[in-house]
Design a protein around this nucleic acid. Structure first.
Lengths: 210, 210
DNA sequence: AACGGTAACCTGACACTGTAAGGTTGTCCA
DNA sequence: TGGACAACCTTACAGTGTCAGGTTACCGTT
């Protein structure tokens, strides 16, 4: 075959197919040839649309990032804006757990910009936080979300199973254990997020009376 | 060559060499043949000491984990024990930033046991925290440490450079920027950790009067 | 209406990866 | 003295990301 009358591939199609493969079989099982096979095409053809594998994965990461909701920072409730941001951020990662290791494995120009640093920083400074503190608060939330996502979704609790078995012997079925781990993860995320937010509120109050 | 009179390789030697290579050139640049070359040996010989590459990396992860200090949980100051744990945990990861993505990218039986869940859980319950809450607190600290490590050490701030440039134009030299990012990371870690700990203290007080 | 450039597919190939199979030899214990 | 085992070796295989170069469809210009 040479050039087809109507194009077979597009960045969008490649992205969707790749993300589906990653969701189904994991990052390690992904290869350019498997993506191509899935699309009834040879691997090098993909390079007409993406310069290399990383650029493809970066693009997927960017589309995931688009689902993160920073709209709250336009309003004036900075606490709730942070809460909404953190939750939607975590949800976005939870939707594609197999992508999380990639997202976190920098070191290049990856959408650590999931952060949407500008919106967050702007909202916080408008609320009265000093610029530097605003940056630090944004980073803190990012730590909580990314840390939670990576240790939870990447199968983190698997080797803690023995611990859980001793501690909660009635949870002997692996199936229930997994459920339980997910529940603990969710609650832990809630705990650290809310505790942090209420601590910030205290510091915010101290700001005014300074 | 056949069997040498005195063994050339050992798990320890392989581990050290590999960790050095990872520190110097990163995880992506690592291959069994490069490790072997560094040791003046052929790659398959490594398999006499490690079943596969992952087992080798797991072993390295375990030695890194040994530097995490959980001794504080033997005492009765749970707050300070958590603080010490978190700091030494983060320091251990900071010492080998290129290993962080691997450590976090489980899904297998990786030393997410960096957690030292038992010591932490034991110390907190002895201090009076309910078992389930103790588990959640341990998980929370882990989120903060791992999240901080991965977004900082894996070059997380690199693509935020533009943001920093606009915001702090006098930091125009990339060199200073990098320093500044590290400083922000350190301070953010401190902020989220201390804010979380002081929030916990409030909840702890509420426990007693319940 | 013919022509050139570019886009989008192809085949083939390269260097490199992890690791399995099996050969050879030194060391140690029965 | 002999056999088991350990620790190196060479060879080889299937799979990886990606480059080079070939072919053809389309689109804009002359």
């Amino acid at each position: 075959m040479a050039r087809p009358r109507t194009p077979i591939l597009s960045r969008e199609l490649i992205r969707h197919t790749t993300l589906r493969l990653v969701d189904e079989h994991g990052l390690d099982a992904l290869s350019m040839r498997k993506i191509a096979t899935e699309l009834d095409v040879r691997a090098p053809s993909l390079y007409n649309h993406y310069a290399n594998k990383d650029e493809l994965l970066d693009d997927i990461a960017a589309t995931i990032a688009e689902n993160v909701d920073v709209s709250g920072f336009a309003g004036d409730d900075w606490q709730d804006a942070l809460r909404t941001w953190a939750h939607s951020y975590r949800d976005a990662l939870a939707e594609h757990p197999n992508m999380v290791p990639f997202l976190a494995s920098g070191p290049s120009n990856r959408p650590v910009a999931l952060v949407r640093a500008d919106a967050v920083h702007g909202g916080l400074t408008r609320a009265g936080w000093p610029p530097r503190t605003a940056t630090m608060i944004g980073a803190s939330i990012k730590y909580i979300v990314v840390g939670s996502a990576i240790t939870s979704f990447a199968g983190g609790f698997i080797d803690d199973i023995d611990t859980y078995n001793e501690r909660y012997p009635h949870l002997s079925q692996a199936h229930r254990l997994r459920e339980y781990a997910a529940e603990i993860d969710q609650d832990s995320f809630e705990l650290v997020l809310e505790t942090f937010l209420s601590g910030l509120t205290l510091q915010y109050a101290a700001l005014d009376t300074r």
